[in-house]
Nucleic acid binder design. Structure first.
Lengths: 212, 212
DNA sequence: CAATATGGACAGTAGAACTATCCGATAGTT
DNA sequence: AACTATCGGATAGTTCTACTGTCCATATTG
C-alpha cells in the first residue's frame, strides 16, 4: 500500500479512505494483514484522482461512475449513466417550460429524449441567462449547439475506436468527464486568441492581473 | 428584505449571509433598522445564484468575479479575471512539460499567453487522459480545439453586441461561467442525438436507468 | 399600546473529503 | 527467539464550506 501511495502520490490514509468508500477495489490478499496491489490498482487510482480533481466529481458520484464502468451495462446506457453522474440532477419541475421550449427549438431535428440531463441543464442555463438580463445576440446559442454537435461526433468516434466493450465504457466515462474540462480549457485559450486578434495588443504587453 | 427574499426565492438568512460575505451590496437605508432593496439587488441576487448553482463557483470565487464586474477594469482584463475565477488555480509546476508541449502543438498559430489558465487546464487534462491509459483517436483533441475556436468567436460577438463597458464586463463574466454549463449540456444532448443516429434505437425504447 | 417585523451579530449545523491515532498481527533482522 | 518496523483495518477527529437558527434592540402597524 505504501508502494501504491508513493507510485501515485496519494497519501496512504487517502487510499484507505478510497478503499473504505469502495472507489478502489481491495488488493489481492497475501495474508491476514497483507495485500498486494498491482498495475490495475494504480491505473484505477489515477482514474479516481482524475474524476475528482479534473472532473470535479464528488466521491459519491465517482463511485456511481466507476460502478458503471465495471458493470456489464450495454454501451448506450453507459452514456446515460456518465451523463447523469456529471450533471447535477435537477428537478424538471423548477425549469421554466418556456426555456425548455426554446432549447427544443434550438435542438430542432435532434433526437434527444425528454429526460436527457443535458437538455434540462441547458434549459436551466437559458433561464438563468434571461433572469440576469442577458440576451442571445448574434446566434450565440445556436453557434454553441453547432459546436456541441461537432464535439459529440468526435466523442463517438473516440469511443468507437476502442476495441472491447469495457474499454468503450471506460472511454465513455473518461470522455464525458474529462471532455468537459478539456473543452472549457481550450475555450479559454481560444478566447484569448480571438480576443488578441480582434484587439491587437497594446505596446506594453503587461501581465493580466490575478484575482484579488 | 423579506420582499427580496420572496421575489427571488432565496431565504432571508441566506441573503443576510450574502450581505455579510460582500456578494450583495447593502440596501438603501431608510432608518437605523430598515433598508430598501431595489430591482438591481434582485438582479444581482439572481446573478449570485446563477454563479453558485449553475457555474458551481464557491462563494469566495464568486466574490472575486463580482468585484471584477463592479471594478473599472479594461475589458481585456475582465476576461482574464473571469477565466482565472472559473479555472482551478493550478501550479504550472505539477503539469508535465510534455503535455504542455502537446497542447502548444495543438494550438499552433494561436496567440495564447504562457499563463493562460485554460492552456494549463487543458494540458492537465491531457496528462490525466494519458495516465489513465487513453489515447487520442481520430483527432479527438484537434476537433475539440476547432469547436472551441468557433465558440470563442461566438463569445466575443456576444460581448461586442453589448453597449457599455459595464454591460460588456458583466457579459464576459456571465458568458464565461454560464457558457461552460451551456456547452456541456448541449454536448450531452448532442451525444444522445449522434448516438441514436449511429445506433438506431432498439424496438423497445426503455428508460435509461438512473444512477444507483 | 401591544404585537409583529426588521436588520444585524454571532453561534451552530450538516455534509464532504480527508487525516491522525490506535491496534493486533506479521515480516524482517539479529 | 526476541525485537523492531510495518502492515491493513477500524474509528475518531479535523477542516472547510455554505448555510441556518437564535437573540436582541429598534421600528412599524393595527
Amino acid at each position: 500500500m505504501a508502494e501504491l501511495s508513493s507510485a501515485s502520490g496519494v497519501p496512504v490514509a487517502t487510499i484507505k479512505f478510497y478503499l473504505r468508500e469502495r472507489l478502489l477495489p481491495a488488493g489481492e490478499r497475501t495474508g491476514p494483514n497483507q495485500a498486494r496491489y498491482g498495475e490495475e490498482h494504480l491505473r484505477r487510482l489515477r482514474l479516481i484522482r482524475g474524476l475528482l480533481e479534473v472532473g470535479g466529481l464528488s466521491v459519491a458520484t465517482a463511485r456511481g461512475v466507476l460502478d458503471a464502468v465495471d458493470s456489464e451495462l450495454p454501451l448506450t446506457q453507459s452514456f446515460g449513466v456518465a451523463q447523469r453522474a456529471v450533471s447535477a440532477t435537477m428537478d424538471p419541475a423548477d425549469i421554466d417550460p418556456q426555456a425548455l421550449a426554446r432549447i427544443d427549438r434550438l435542438l430542432a431535428g435532434w433526437r434527444v429524449s425528454g429526460d436527457n440531463p443535458g437538455r434540462l441543464a441547458a434549459a436551466y442555463v437559458l433561464q438563468t441567462f434571461d433572469s440576469v438580463g442577458q440576451r442571445d445576440e448574434r446566434d450565440w446559442f445556436s453557434r454553441y449547439a453547432a459546436a456541441a454537435l461537432l464535439v459529440a461526433e468526435a466523442d463517438l468516434d473516440q469511443v468507437e475506436a476502442r476495441g472491447s466493450r469495457e474499454d468503450m465504457a471506460e472511454t465513455v466515462v473518461i470522455g464525458t468527464v474529462l471532455g468537459d474540462a478539456l473543452f472549457s480549457g481550450l475555450r479559454r485559450a481560444a478566447q484569448e486568441h480571438v480576443s488578441s486578434l480582434r484587439y491587437p495588443v497594446s505596446p506594453e504587453p503587461g501581465r493580466i492581473p490575478t484575482l484579488e
